[in-house]
Design a protein around this nucleic acid. Structure first.
Lengths: 417, 417
DNA sequence: ATAATTTAATTTGACGTCCAAAATAATGTT
DNA sequence: AACATTATTTTGGACGTCAAATTAAATTAT
């Protein structure tokens, strides 16, 4: 049941859509905000007045884009105040921690990748190491933790975003690694943890808001197989925040052993290491190969397949069939309107696509199949970082609009300059 | 992006939660509505005044429940006006059409099952037959189509609720059967078509609103295997309204032939006819048996399995394994917090449950498995009808609250009496 | 019987929001 | 310099919620 509504809710909602409009379309005049949102010019004026007073918005001076033959009073464009707040994105990988610093307008103003031997770390050590790494990053940028409004953290594997714990990840030997707890208590900054594929979906939505309004599944194929699920125009996180573990959706009961400890996961057939194993003809119940495969090795395998190596081609076909049946199952269950294939693995799309499409046709009834658009998108891994930033900023939009009072951890213009 | 808000939205929203509260908890005093919704007594008075004037609510006279030692001015209970509107639920089965007539308060005041040889019908004939059946039902109840505010239709198989067409159903030999189109144009009543398992989920939510707030999957096992998916406290319909075809989610690529025309669907192992086929040892690529199995036959098979018939037991175990792996895949993908097993097939739960649970444990990583509650619920098939009514009434709540003006097809008290 | 007490519902007045319309501002055109 | 045009702000009315005061309708106490 929805909560009761009052005039306060009205203002919050309308402040929110003004912020969202400017974030989505970039700076524009008050009139244009009104046209897009449906708000009257009077209301836009009033809301903008508030948000400017709170330093969330700025009136832009540059009339460079102005047409000199345009009659009438010139429009004053409104834009997000880049200095309204700073957010940090953290990306956890098997061999390092990537940190990016972004302004309220989304511009990344600093980034650095720190080597970190995550795999052999005990569970408690990760938090303290991450804290000192972030602090060092902040020092290098002449900032302190109090200047940061929010930290978003993306990880491979199974993230329990409700508890802020990495339940399991290929980047770690151990399980149950607490992340947001130590970071929040030490740095005093609100943190959120999520799966990296979900953050790619966030990035995609930030980039192309009007395309992803219904239900879409974004598949990310590479060293692993991930998925971000967009349901009714919002990234779906599930009960504990671990949703859309497409890579560990079972493909064949009792099949190939997976990094996660189970047998027959889709990933064990379609991730880099799975394809390589197929090629090497290792029996299914062997332990999985080292989970990170050298890209050059994969490149060589692709070339071999393209130049007629039947065994190599078969390995890719097996991968395509696994992904295809996984998608067929997803289509039957969720009836999505769009599936996006992305990730480094799509370089070999010519090798896997025929069996992938055949498997979908074989695995799901035509009436369901025909309503879903399947497309390929060249998404670089950097979208994990940008998507994490987008998600953090959207959260701030909500905080700022929701309270009317700026959250106490949000650095206003005065604090930063 | 959400739409802009104004005072009109506030009233609509608050009218809606007042109606919803009364539908959920039954009649109560204005004060209590205020306590539950968080609205002030003044606002409840104002909203109730409007809704009473529109004949959506009534002040109840019966103070039977009143405690005579209760001091103070006696509370006047508000209740949904049973005569505010009438809705009809239609349930399409392979051999008949069930019709139920319900009041605005949800009480079913008439129902009848009409024999109808659906299976051999040409696609266009169903609509005209259904229309004349509904008209005959209405005549028997001294009503005309203009007295009906809404018709909800539930069907087995794949319903495209966006187009109002049955894409495919075991009740019909042909495909693409238009349903809402002919009914709406002939009767002049808004109609909606949905899958029967989705309507069971609607009924479950109407009964137990506070249990189903997050993500839950309701499995219905019987002559087929269906599923209703509740996501974020609302039944999920997917892009075309065909969502949650769990029964036709592939289990084994190239496996047993299914009624839908594909091979290896979960249903082909776990529905009555699938279990019977397993028992009869028919090779997988044979055509499926007749899709409706006599319950007595299934009863005999169950008894055989319980008294030590190894082949019969194996058939049930195969069914459990198919459902288990299907649920494992669903858990990996959606990370739900609740799975409900229901339907006539759960009579044999003792036979299928051990392999079902083993398959889940085998098919999904423990960290995901442990967060989902799996329970069994004795749901009778009648919940398809009641759930369809619940869904139709909730839609009316929305219409009434949304417009403030009662929809023109809604019969008010004056029209009916 | 009558007053006091208690609880429910309504009325009143203040406040916040949106919007239409009028007023003002800032430019180009004649 | 007056006019036309476009953007923004101001004004005043409509409508929502709510707190507080008032009214209503019962029981209990005297």
């Amino acid at each position: 049941m929805r909560a009761k509504a009052d005039t306060d809710l009205v203002r919050r909602q309308n402040r929110h859509i003004v912020l969202e409009t400017l974030r989505l379309h970039g700076p524009m005049a008050r009139v244009d905000v009104g046209k897009i949102t449906g708000l009257s010019p009077a209301s836009v004026t009033s809301i903008a007045h508030q948000l400017i007073a709170e330093n969330a918005l700025l009136e832009l001076e540059d009339d460079t884009a102005r047409d000199p033959s345009q009659r009438g009073r010139p429009a004053v464009r409104l834009g997000l105040n880049p200095k309204a707040a700073l957010v940090i994105a953290l990306k956890i990988s098997i061999d390092g921690l990537e940190i990016a610093l972004a302004q309220f307008d989304g511009e990344i103003i600093a980034r650095k990748t720190y080597p970190m031997a995550t795999y052999d770390m005990p569970a408690q050590l990760f938090g303290t190491t991450a804290i000192s790494t972030v602090l060092s990053f902040l020092r290098d940028n002449r900032l302190s933790a109090t200047d940061i409004a929010r930290i978003g953290i993306a990880t491979q594997g199974l993230a329990d975003s409700r508890l802020g714990v990495i339940a399991w990840s290929p980047a770690f030997k151990v399980r149950s690694i607490p992340v947001t707890g130590p970071l929040e208590s030490e740095l005093g900054v609100p943190c959120s943890l999520a799966n990296d594929a979900n953050m790619i979906a966030e990035g995609l939505m930030a980039r192309d808001r009007y395309t992803y309004t219904g239900t879409a599944a974004v598949v990310f194929v590479g060293y692993g197989v991930g998925m971000g699920l967009i349901i009714d125009g919002a990234v779906y996180h599930g009960a504990t925040g671990a949703a859309a573990e497409f890579g560990h959706m079972n493909h064949v009961p009792g099949g190939a052993k997976c990094r996660c400890g189970r047998a027959g996961c889709l990933e064990a057939y379609a991730a880099d290491y799975g394809i390589l194993r197929s090629y090497n003809d290792i029996v299914d119940d062997d332990a999985p190969l080292s989970s990170r495969v050298d890209p050059l090795v994969m490149q060589a395998l692709e070339n071999a397949a393209r130049s007629g190596d039947a065994k190599a081609l078969l390995a890719y076909q097996k991968a395509g069939r696994a992904i295809g049946f996984g998608l067929a199952r997803l289509i039957a269950l969720l009836n999505p309107d769009r599936i996006v294939l992305s990730g480094p693995g799509t370089r070999a799309l010519d090798l896997i696509e025929p069996t992938l499409r055949a498997a979908i046709d074989e695995g799901v009834v035509a009436e369901l199949r025909q309503n879903v658009k399947i497309e390929t998108l060249p998404i670089d891994t950097d979208m994990i970082i940008t998507g994490t930033i987008d998600a953090a900023l959207r959260h701030l939009d909500f905080e700022i609009f929701a309270s009317g009072r700026v959250h106490n951890t949000v650095s206003l213009w005065e604090n930063v300059n």
